[in-house]
């Protein structure tokens, strides 16, 4: 099973949102990293067929998805960034409605709705109106509807937004568990969501795919470029002006700075094992030095 994107571009007027994206996806989790406006959501919408590319083709197992039409839509599960719901519907009723839209029969729908509600931990609230749900519960309903048709291609845009840490871990485990026989495409700002489950990470910047590789190989790129150093308060400003400081933590009355730099930024700096978050900030966070928060 493979999904191939061939020179996909999307323009809104003069603005190029996606620029000549080509890649191949096979079963496993793909994490898409990118700053706001990098084109993540547009790419996901194009893959979910709710938006057309300005140019380029997408094929699934060698067939153009435009020719496949509803046969392609039958294979996908899509969670958009904003979860849309009918407030007056109960969770059960809403999921049944989406199940019918996905072409499930009445008998299949009943079983599948029960199964996905169980998966996202909302079985007990199935008779409650979704309008009364918390943000996290609404997100879980969104995830549940995406899984109703047992999709071969699962497209989830910021699935962990609004979820508490326990729910995030639960979702991460769920995606990891179901990814063995399907393609899961996941975009997020929260790097830890994909750090341990992504088969490959796609890095989008200003509409261009600048990196696509396994997390480990991507991290190799910044190997030897991540440093920590403990300094006094007076030295912070000087280091911030010269280097990309991604984190500041107060440790035993000293300030520990995490710095991205090609060279040793301070005589006492120690080289650290890079994390995906460092990679993200290495590529995107231009204002990291100024914005780095102090953790105590």
């Amino acid at each position: 099973m493979n999904l191939i994107l061939d020179k996909i571009s999307k323009c809104f007027g003069d603005k190029i949102v996606l620029d000549d994206i080509s890649l191949e996806l096979t079963p496993g989790v793909y994490g898409i990293l990118g700053a706001n406006g990098s084109g993540k959501t547009t790419l996901m919408r194009i893959l979910a067929t709710v938006m057309n590319p300005s140019s380029g083709h997408i094929s699934f197992n060698g067939q153009d998805i435009n020719d496949m039409e509803h046969r392609y839509r039958e294979l996908i599960g899509y969670l958009p960034q904003q979860v849309g719901l009918y407030k007056s519907f109960t969770a059960e009723k809403f999921l049944s409605y989406i199940a019918y839209l996905k072409g499930l029969t009445k008998a299949e729908t009943q079983d599948k709705v029960t199964e996905v509600l169980d998966l996202v931990g909302l079985s007990e609230q199935r008779k409650e109106k979704v309008g009364k749900y918390s943000g996290g519960m609404k997100r879980r309903i969104g995830i549940a509807q995406a899984l109703l048709n047992d999709p071969k291609l699962l497209i989830v845009d910021e699935p962990t937004a609004g979820l508490d840490p326990k729910e995030r871990i639960r979702l991460r485990n769920l995606l990891s568990r179901i990814s063995s026989h399907r393609i899961v495409l996941l975009s997020t700002h929260i790097v830890s969501d994909i750090e341990y489950i992504a088969k490959e990470v796609l890095i989008l910047k200003e509409g261009q795919l600048i990196q696509k590789d396994t997390p480990q190989r991507l991290l190799n790129e910044i190997e030897g470029k991540v440093w920590t150093v403990q300094v006094s308060e007076g030295e912070i400003l000087e280091l911030q002006s010269k280097y990309k400081v991604v984190n500041i933590a107060l440790v035993r009355e000293k300030y520990e700075l995490r710095i991205l730099s090609d060279t040793r930024p301070h005589i006492h700096a120690i080289s650290e094992v890079p994390h995906l978050e460092d990679l993200y900030l290495y590529h995107f966070d231009e204002g990291a030095s100024q914005d780095a928060a102090v953790k105590v």
Binding site: R45, A48, T49, V50, H70, R73, E74, I76, Y78, P80, Q82, G84, I98, Y100, L101, K102, G103, Q145, N149
Partner: peptide
């Protein structure tokens, strides 16, 4: 509409 337009029916 995001769900609707991405579904089979």
């Amino acid at each position: 509409d995001h769900y609707i337009l991405s579904t089979k029916k």
